[in-house]
Design a binder for these strands. Sequence first.
RNA 1: GGGCGGUUAGCUCAGUUGGUUAGAGCGCCUGCCUUACAAGCAGGAUGUCGGGGGUUCGAGUCCCUCACUGCCCACCA
Length: 941
Amino acid sequence: MSHELPKAYDPSVIEERWARYWVEERLFDVATPAEDTQDTTKKFTILLPPPNVTGRLHMGHMLNQTEMDILTRWRRMLGETALWVPGTDHAGIATQMMVERQLASEGSSRQQLGREAFIERVWDWRAHYGGAILDQMKRLGASVDWSREYFTMDERLSLAVREAFVRLWEQGLIYRGAYIVNWDPVLKTAVSDLEVTHEERQGKLYHIRYPLADGTGSITIATTRPETLLGDTAVAVNPNDERYRALIGKKVRVPMTGVNGGADREVPIVADDWANPEFGTGAVKVTPAHDPNDFAIGQRHKLPSLTILDETAHVLLPGSPYHGLDRYAAREKLLADLEAAGMLVAVKDHALAIALSQRSGAVIEPRLSDQWFIAVNKQPASGGNSIAQNAIDAVDAANGAKPAIQFTPEMYKKIYLEWMTNIHDWCISRQLWWGHRIPAWHCGECKEITVARETPTKCGKCGSANITQETDVLDTWFSSGLLPFTVFGWPQNMADIRAFYPTQLLVTGFDILFFWVARMIMLGCHFMLDVPLPDGSKRELKDAVPFREVYIHALVRDAERQKMSKTKGNVIDPIEIVEKYGTDAVRFTLASMASPGTDIAFSEGRTEGYRAFANKIWNAARFLFMQMDAAQKAGYTVSVGAPPSPSASSSAQVGALPETTPLETRWMFSRLSAVSAEVERALAAYRFDEAASAVYQFFWGEFCDWYLELVKLRLDFGENHTKNDITAITLASLVAVFESALRLLSPFMPFLTEEIWHALYNNAAPAKSIALTRYPLAADFPADAAADAAMKTLQDLIVTVRALRKELGVPEKEAAPIQLHASNRVLALADANCDMLSRLARVQSVEFANESLTGTNARSTSEFDVTIVYERQIDVAAERERLTKELAKFEKGLAAAQKQLGNEAFMAKAPAHIVDGLRKQAAETQMLYDKAKTALEALPK
RNA sequence: GGGCGGUUAGCUCAGUUGGUUAGAGCGCCUGCCUUACAAGCAGGAUGUCGGGGGUUCGAGUCCCUCACUGCCCACCA
């Protein structure tokens, strides 16, 4: 007995084994092609969006990886050089927080450890826990090149980051300066605009009276953040506001700003267009150090900036009664004091969008501080386009030309361009310890900044040795934005760059469209334009882009369409689901639900269904193996042909079929050809849902439901069996179809197909993995329209007879004769295939009728009338109901058709094939209507 | 304040450039342990395609409008 396959399908047993095998055998590693050979193989290079090293795999990852794996396996099987590069991101803030939390639980802190020891500690943490998410990936069978695994803090990548920074600096595209940034008072660092979310909250608008310094009156301002008045350096009014025109240039005393018992600060009233006469009182306080708009006003009017909050958002104003108070405590006290002094004029409800730090949840405090920026809209010193302009041109080609980067769904192109067009300079400095430290040194003497590739020993300007390195690190997205070229060795080793850059595709979620996708385009285009093409010619934008296509996928939600989140407790752990149903079933679920533009409501019910599908495949294999063994015993030579290799030329796998090939086999190959074409079309368009449903329908609905049942007719190896051609042809075809179907399925269900495929070859498979064989192509199998049509008719006949039998109450096992009235073609078909009718519809015999058949035992289709010869009376009431319903349906159809056909405008304007089709259909409907009517009238009253 | 999606069977979703009488899976109902599979087989029921208006010979599909819903962006105190 050969072909070992346990009776029960148990994914847990087979999946871990193959997952390990794929990694250990290094099946998906791709070596750098030798440069002197003319390698014309198409490349499919794809970068895994690196998960945070702190991360645990979630459904979003699994969707992302499933999609990438399907595409990569598919391309690989098409003979392309498929390289999928994995790695992890050092995730500055997230990782630092994680380790700090750990330290806190030990009663320690990073400050206690000091910078160096802390970073050591993070590396330790990473060594212990950092591999978790990639291990999970291995379990999911991702066909990545593990030999190229990277970490964004690796020595090699760190050097590249430093190089990129220095070059930008040299090009004048990086500057340092004091600007208002989003300050996270919990993490004590600046964060970028993208890392801030806004939340609608009910707040208050406070009207506060500022007395004029000359004692002639007062002006009332409106603010939502009264505590910031401690840092006010002006009051602004609109120059066109009649109410205040006379006050412009006068001074006011900002209440409660006296220090050490001194007088309140005097500040000017300035005229500025920013002040909106419609809002509040029309007069606005100006706090340049704590509000971006106020900062701008300050610049326009040369106002001083007064920082009154420290890095933890406590009041920093020595000598003031508010000094040391948290910003909200200060607000309370200040309001109470103002109230007592009669300065608080009004308090109004006011809805405001409050800025929150995405990471810590803290309320962002705009704060003036020294930060590093990339000037994205500035031309490089050496000439050329600004970073943003290149990033726009790459996606929105001039004169309607095909852009270098294409988005799927296309809608995201618009969103991207909108953002890129309005982009501000990118704040890349973070006040963290974990990350790429900025390669800049401050001179203690002349204050000059020296930016260098190698650690300098003295100031680049005055030569002083009194220099200290910048303490800030770079935004994590700066390094990950460089990945498409740094993973391939830029700037030192360019062999892989020449072979693999640009990557073909990026698959990711829209949540990192700006964070990562946009930054890769910005940095990729900018740096790679300077790298010549392999043939030495100048690289243009179309080849400088980091990837040629971007596929943005949906969000995975829970079954109730809720976003999964830890706080809601509705997070579905993919590993748990995988353990329950098997990776293949979960992958198939995600693929089948991944239609572009729609979020996925993950439901276990679907997964259950696809586990059933996996089980179906398993059992089909068992059936096949039984047949092979039986055939062998009956004296047949059963061999499984080797599939084509991926690089094989596209000559057909199965040529012309022998004359004696039975109908169902001709049909099956024809279907296999059609479904191969459909899958190819769907995957090329990223329609994972359509591809999945095509293979599902093919395998279950056609191969199992029809073909396997029909081949049983030819494969009866009982005692009376004599060797014959039809059996041999059927057997060989069955095996070939099944083997092809496994390859067709394998990108979707890699584990199951791998297991069965090896069993099919008795563990002596012609390749190390099914993943290294060629994907089925439409041209591999003979299409046969005649067989398709014939099978369609027979299927109709069989289904009609089954339904009729059920209705008549013919016992399941009892065979019954039928009468058939139809065209000669159909009659001949039924005659030639009466064994099919017998097997699948328990037809005892077929009698051909000359007259149209109606009556209680009859059913009609456009091609035939059929009656079952069976004495039992039908349920008259039920039959009447059915016929009445059918009549109504036909009437409706007829009425619609006649209305159309009677419409002169339609007849004149509609294309001929539509009119003909409608005519034909109307005629058929009329016929069916007549028959149903006759049948209804024939029913006993 | 801008912008973008979604609304189709009880549930989750397809439905390509307008074209004949709108589909799938799950669930539901009925009958079957038919020797690959009860995680199965066979049969069956189910929709005023969110409301209204318009364009067209023809609208689930295009336009307008309303409603509900989700998301993104935004420096109005």
